[in-house]
């Protein structure tokens, strides 16, 4: 699965969890750029991504991402992309 496809699926998850149909993610998108992406919805996003891709993030990873790109890199490395 190439990165772009993964990005699209992650974007779908964001749209669903944050209930924001038109939300567009870029690698440099941060929580500050997105309405509703707070520490609580962050957990919902992680759990949803873990379920969708059948992966598990470590507690450090969960706390360390500064933007969508870093999240995506963590995810891709787990998926061997």
């Amino acid at each position: 699965m190439e990165e772009e496809k993964i990005m699209n699926r992650v974007q779908d998850i964001f749209r669903d969890v944050l209930d924001e149909e038109s939300l567009t993610l870029k690698r440099d998108t941060t929580a500050n750029d997105v309405d509703g992406w707070d520490s609580l919805t962050h957990i919902q996003l992680i759990v949803a991504i873990e379920k969708r891709f059948k992966v598990k993030f470590s507690s450090k990873e969960i706390l360390s991402w500064k933007n969508v790109g870093e999240l995506l890199d963590s995810l891709c490395s787990k998926l061997n992309v």
Binding site: S39, I43, Q44, V47, K56, S58, S59, E61, I62, L63
Partner: peptide, 16 residues
């Protein structure tokens, strides 16, 4: 229980 979420958030019940 979701240990990684608990460490980051003080939540002791998983979303499931």
């Amino acid at each position: 229980f979701h240990p990684a979420v608990y460490i980051g958030s003080e939540m002791v019940l998983s979303l499931d």
